[in-house]
């Protein structure tokens, strides 16, 4: 299909706040992006002409923000609402190989939904990983450097070379990726073997490093992972905030034609236009 025919659902509820720049990124890359409230997908309190169906879209994106005020835990409420009302539609969407992207709060939601890491099933009943409080105990808002660690499984990073380092800012309080302690090594090895690790925080020399390069204390420096099929992807940093060259942290000294984050959007659109 042509890129202009690719319909992207940017899902919001109260507290989402990155929908404008996320939809702008997809639009600038040529796709048709629509900001859709969860109630429009559920047909709840909406006029018939406002109702939307998930199956009519090629890509689902859960953007950043503070959905439901981060009550209980970041992402927990929206995940519960989605799971209770649209689990079957979402599982089918993922099963069809359609891409799902979660950025920041969106990543937290995908983890709380149990679709990431998505090792043993498309969606687990309970979460199997956690994005917990940053080790610093505070909200971290800073540029971060990410190494593409993926060998090709993730459909969101195919435009990046393995080992390529990109800039994307982080802005979160709960971003420390954790696996169950008693199975940590085994599950981490599985993620490596399945090529599910996508981005890792690195320092200016491209080495895995501690704080502040790794802003939250994530296990193995993990900044982003995909499911075992590679079509569901979540990352804590914001690629939509380095879509343009002038959004790069060093833009006063070095303005590239494109921002580093653009590759994430171009990769998934390239995949969709070829596959569907």
């Amino acid at each position: 299909m042509k890129v202009e025919d690719v319909k992207v659902c940017i899902l919001i509820i109260e507290g989402t706040n990155c929908e404008a720049e996320t939809s702008q990124a997809f639009r600038r890359s040529g796709a048709s992006a629509e900001i859709v409230h969860l109630k429009q997908l559920l047909g709840q309190d909406t006029k018939p002409e406002e109702t939307r169906k998930l199956e009519d879209y090629e890509i689902l994106v859960i953007p950043g923000g503070f959905s439901s005020g981060d009550y209980v835990r970041a992402g927990a409420i929206l995940a519960a609402r989605m799971k209770s009302r649209m689990e079957d539609e979402l599982v089918q969407f993922i099963d069809e190989g359609k891409p799902v992207l979660g950025i920041c709060n969106g990543f937290q939601i995908l983890v709380e939904l149990g679709v990431l890491p998505g090792i043993e099933s498309i969606m687990s009943r309970y979460p199997t990983a956690s994005l917990g409080w940053n080790d610093s105990g505070r909200f971290e808002c800073r540029p971060t450097l990410l190494e593409n660690w993926n060998k090709g499984k993730c459909i969101f990073t195919t435009k990046l070379e393995r080992g390529q380092i990109i800039q994307a800012p982080t802005a979160h309080a709960e971003g420390k990726f954790m696996l169950p302690k008693h199975r940590e090594k085994e599950l981490l090895d599985t993620l490596k073997d399945n090529d599910q690790i996508v981005f890792r925080y690195v320092d200016a020399e491209g080495q895995i490093a501690g704080y502040p390069w790794n802003p939250n204390g994530s296990l193995f420096g993990i900044a982003g992972i995909c499911n075992s099929e590679g079509n569901v992807f979540g990352m804590m940093p914001h690629p939509e905030r380095t879509y343009l060259g002038i959004q790069q942290a060093d833009w006063t000294r070095n303005v590239p034609d494109n921002g580093d984050g653009k590759a994430v959007f171009e990769s998934v659109l390239d995949h969709v236009t070829k596959k569907f």
């Binding site: 409420i77 309970y126 956690s130």
Partner: peptide, 10 residues
């Protein structure tokens, strides 16, 4: 607890 109030991982 398992489905909302807690994340059983942590």
């Amino acid at each position: 607890c398992n489905r909302l109030l807690a994340n059983p991982v942590i």
